[in-house]
Amino acid sequence: MAIATLLGWALDGLLMLVLLWLAWRVLACKGLFRAVVLFIAFGLVLSLVWVRLDAPDVALAEAAIGAGLTGALLLSTLARLDALDAKQDEDASS
């Protein structure tokens, strides 16, 4: 029994560290695209945490809405922003 709790502690500790590290990288890394992808990863790790906390409903919601949909929204906005920048550069240069 002791090993199971030990493993449990190790997993939780690992999840916490990964969570904090991912959050820091999302907010501090260079490219925006890299930040969004890391944010999606952050959402998935967070779903794992919800499972560890016996909250399956929240895990499902987080995975589907938090990581999935918010990620999709972020990516599509990023694409549109790059398209706008491209158009502005081309307006500027023409």
């Binding site: 959050a23 999302v26 907010l27 969004v36 944010f39 967070l46 909250a55 929240v58 938090g66 972020l74």
Partner: peptide, 19 residues
């Protein structure tokens, strides 16, 4: 965009405290 990401992470933080 960075600020919006920050707000999302803060939200996840509060939800983590709650759960």
């Amino acid at each position: 965009l960075r600020k919006i990401l920050a707000l999302n992470i803060m939200g996840s933080g509060v939800f983590l405290v709650l759960t």
